[in-house]
């Protein structure tokens, strides 16, 4: 199957240090996949490669059927990204931020307005369109970034530690929102996190540790009778 997100035999090193070691991911269209790993596991490196911030010759990445190295523009166009670092202009309004991003994808004028309205509505942010980002709390800023990532109607949504720095309520709400996107809109999601409570029982789960995929399956099957947190800690924490 060609669509969804496919990563094959991906390796990457910073000088002598191996950051990713023969990583394989295969996520079917419409699936929510959680990439769970402790800090330093290689999640950010993987996101750097998936978003083509940098490239490697070892391995292939295919986004919605487009090979990232052979057809980077089609692959990037099919992908929405929420970065770990905040990427909003604080002095601009929510709408201005979204318009800027739409234009980077070649969307302008009335079409941009319609998409912005729909995306903000989807994330419950419609009434805040004209507010300056500086005036928003962390949860609403994240929602703005997720709404922005949906503007060009991507097939795949990548989120790198999207709940970092948020309080428990905002964290839960964002996690639920993105699961909804997946269930209701058929979006394929890759959700990187180090927090086990953001992973649902029915999610596809990859556990990444020291650049290697330790587990690949449905969360419920991996956890078995134990809770995910203790499984995760026993696999990654014990040897750390």
């Amino acid at each position: 199957m060609s669509s969804g997100l496919r990563v094959k035999n991906l390796s990457f090193r910073y000088g002598a240090r191996v950051a990713l070691d023969d990583v394989n991911l295969s996520i079917d269209p419409g699936a929510f996949a959680a990439l769970l790993g402790p800090n330093g596991a290689g999640k950010s490196t993987l996101f750097g490669l998936l978003t083509r911030l940098f490239t490697t010759e070892n391995g292939t990445i295919s986004i919605a059927g487009h090979d990232l190295s052979r057809d980077p523009r089609a692959a990037l166009g099919a992908m929405g990204v929420v970065f770990q670092q905040p990427t909003l202009d604080l002095d601009l309004s929510v709408e201005q931020n979204l318009r800027y991003f739409a234009a980077l994808h070649g969307i302008s004028g009335r079409d941009a307005g319609v998409r912005i309205g729909a995306a903000l509505d989807r994330l419950g942010m419609a009434e805040r369109a004209r507010e300056k980002v500086r005036a928003l709390n962390g949860g609403h800023r994240r929602r703005t970034e997720i709404a922005r990532a949906l503007l060009h109607r991507p097939k795949i949504l990548l989120l790198d530690e999207a709940t970092v720095g948020l309080d428990a309520a905002a964290r839960q709400s964002i996690t639920a929102h993105v699961h909804d996107l997946c269930a209701n809109d058929g979006m394929t999601v890759l959700w990187a996190t180090h927090l086990t409570d953001e992973v649902y029982d029915t999610d596809r789960l990859f556990i990444l540790h020291r650049g290697k995929i330790l587990q690949d399956g449905i969360t419920r099957d991996i956890a078995g009778d134990r809770d995910l947190k203790s499984v995760f800690l026993s696999q990654t924490g014990a040897e750390a």
Partner: peptide
């Protein structure tokens, strides 16, 4: 300004 985030955003645009 640790503005790398917004540069990354710019660079994920499908334009060259």
């Amino acid at each position: 300004d640790r503005e790398m985030g917004s540069m990354r955003l710019l660079l994920t645009s499908p334009l060259p």
